[in-house]
């Protein structure tokens, strides 16, 4: 066990962990305010990646309803990224209006929202497949400009390598996290949001437009989802409309591990799982998929509210 080996795994773990974390932030925001898990988040994440792809490359593939079509314009990648994220935010709002608000209005069983959001996810994913086909899409390799694909340096004579996209993912996640923390703790809107999360009735009595804040939360959640979907798409390509699903499930483990509804918890959970997977001994690579869930199971048994979760009575 050399220093280089340790550093390499640390880098791998941090970068993957930050990916898990930004994905999980979208879940956590919605959970903190509604106490419900939005199963459609993974689909919004996927949608964001496809939208940015479409806006920046402009070309549909050979399958799907729109096969061979071309957008009359394309945007430079940074603009497309923002536009794609904004559209994902709108998609997030649509999810709220379709799957959550009608149920709230009818005071339905909270569990039903799991199914209705799953229904919206099914619609979104299959709509993407219907329009784009199931094939693999990929951003051009120069999407990040002329940065080298990787940095390789030596520690104690042994090479340590990190891909540039890994660094970008890590930095962007940190920025997103900081922005979110500022928004929630440093702005008036954030304060109102926290009040809404604390108690909707009280917030409403205080003159806060609860409905608008819920909608706003879904916008931010969708925006974060679309942004992280694009970043992961840039890093790994879009391997079909289901590529968000595997992340979606793991991100569930992340938010629970860190503590439901806790933003620092989502980050901590992401890093714990990312590092846990990275430091898995090479001989046990066949168990990598189980690491996140095994950690989750064990931690829940020791600390039922997650690492940073509060001890208040949980809503479902």
């Amino acid at each position: 066990m050399t220093l280089a080996w340790f550093l390499q795994n640390l880098l791998n773990g941090l970068s993957m962990g930050s990916v898990y974390a930004i994905f999980a932030l979208g879940y956590t925001l919605v959970f903190s305010i509604l106490g419900i898990i939005n199963f459609a988040h993974g689909a919004v994440f996927t949608l964001g990646a496809y939208l940015t792809y479409l806006l920046s490359v402009g070309q549909f593939g050979i399958n799907g309803l729109l096969a061979g079509w071309q957008l009359p314009f394309t945007l430079p990648f940074p603009l497309a990224l923002l536009a794609g994220a904004g559209l994902s935010g709108l998609a997030g709002m649509a999810v709220e209006r379709l799957a959550f608000k009608p149920l709230r209005a009818r005071q339905a069983d909270a569990l039903l929202a799991l199914v209705s959001s799953l229904g919206v996810a099914l619609i979104l994913v299959n709509l993407i497949q219907y329009l784009f086909g199931a094939e693999i899409y990929s951003y051009p390799s120069d999407v990040l400009g002329s940065l080298p694909p990787a940095f390789i340096f030596k520690v104690g004579g042994k090479p340590v390598a990190v891909r540039t996209v890994q660094i970008v993912l890590f930095v962007v996640s940190l920025v997103m996290l900081a922005a979110l923390a500022w928004f929630i703790h440093g702005t008036k809107a954030g304060k109102a949001l926290r009040a809404t999360a604390e108690n909707q009735d009280t917030a409403s009595l205080l003159g806060i437009n609860v409905d608008a804040f819920i909608l706003g939360t879904f916008f931010v959640s969708g925006l974060l989802g679309g942004l992280s979907g694009t970043l992961i798409g840039v890093s790994f390509g879009l391997s079909g409309p289901y590529f968000g699903v595997a992340y979606g499930l793991k991100a569930l483990a992340v938010i629970v591990l860190g503590g439901l509804g806790s933003i620092p918890g989502a980050v901590l959970g992401g890093l714990v799982i990312g590092l846990g997977e990275a430091f898995l001994p090479p001989d046990l690579s066949s168990y990598k998929e189980a690491v996140a869930y095994a950690l989750l199971f064990v931690i829940l048994l020791v600390r039922p509210q997650g690492l940073l979760g509060g001890t208040t009575e949980q809503k479902v």
């Binding site: 970068s15 590529f243 898995l280 090479p282």
Partner: peptide, 22 residues
């Protein structure tokens, strides 16, 4: 010298690559 397993749903292979490069 090494046998590494992965899943078809995986996208990040840094763990496996690190093992190979080692």
């Amino acid at each position: 010298v090494t046998i590494q397993r992965f899943q078809t749903t995986d996208t990040d292979f840094t763990t496996q690559v690190t093992a190979v490069l080692g």
